[in-house]
Write a protein that binds this DNA or RNA. Sequence first.
DNA 1: CATTTATTTCAGAAATTTCTGAAACATCTG
DNA 2: CAGATGTTTCAGAAATTTCTGAAATAAATG
Lengths: 183, 183
Amino acid sequence: MTLTPIQQEFVLHFGEMGSRWGINRTVGQIYALLFLSPDPLNAEAITRALDVSRSNISMGLKELQSWNLIRMRHMQGDRRDYFTTPDDIWDIVRILVAERKKREIDPTLTKLRELEMQGGTGNSYSDARISELRELIAMMTDFYNDIERLETERLVKLMTLGGRIAGLIDKADGVMASLGKGR
Amino acid sequence: MTLTPIQQEFVLHFGEMGSRWGINRTVGQIYALLFLSPDPLNAEAITRALDVSRSNISMGLKELQSWNLIRMRHMQGDRRDYFTTPDDIWDIVRILVAERKKREIDPTLTKLRELEMQGGTGNSYSDARISELRELIAMMTDFYNDIERLETERLVKLMTLGGRIAGLIDKADGVMASLGKGR
DNA sequence: CATTTATTTCAGAAATTTCTGAAACATCTG
DNA sequence: CAGATGTTTCAGAAATTTCTGAAATAAATG
């Protein structure tokens, strides 16, 4: 896999964005490369394309696997490991969101619950802030669980509702109210 | 502001999570402290509470201001700067999402458009991948713009729809179809 | 305008993260 | 099993980020 200039630029961009996304440069570049590649690549091919050390690639691949972001595959009569990104780009988004939630949100939700268990902070404002935050994160987490279950088709429909979304929410709410379940 | 043990733990947690959230430990701790504090705090008070250098606090506050995550206030007859987090926790969420989008998503959308402008990569699969990715990010960005406009009340309603959300999407789609605008 | 008070800047120190090359490990082949 | 092939581990080097203390800047006070 020799990269054309545009592919090169794409790969370098992912490398640069890596630090903002919570991965390192090499991991970003490996992912970008696999994302663009029509075929699975082995570590040796990745090393040649990115011009970093073989061991760095090995660690990067391990990291990407821990993120569930790449799949390992094998070829007939070749004992090297080959890697790909999921074909369906929506799968990639789902994985990314799931993993970021797991790393960036869940530990805090757990910690907040822990803190609340341990009794108050000794300050009513702090207590209120913590419980507000816990409630908000719990609500977002529940919403995430509902959204996560939607098939891609419905998800796309939701996302393309545009301005009609407000009316739709109100309509759903109206139904709730008429059923005596309003909040 | 002397911290109780539970407040201390909250502050330390935010410090530790900082690196996953794309901020450093001190910035995380400052934010946690301001979040819990009923009253605005000045840099000196923050320095005492967190036990790091005054200059580090100064830089941390600057960083938080660049994120729009804190507000500067002044007290009558006191020329020191005081800082708070927004009272409404939903405002905090909105700001966070907006800033992360700005830093983590927008540059990539711009880059992808740039790459597409420059003509293809020389590989049809790569081209398709890039344009798919650009479309997906654009869709999510548009959705974000719609959501961002919703008042908190409607946002909460949306998030608490639970399992009914799928049906609601279908209903909206049905209306679209009957109007001959189906996609 | 000299002094006091508050804040920022910045060069270098400290800490952390990333990366490399060499060695270890693992597995296959003849 | 000896050699070949492929992967991982890991100690230290390199790069990057964070943090500090001292100096600079800014603004108010008497």
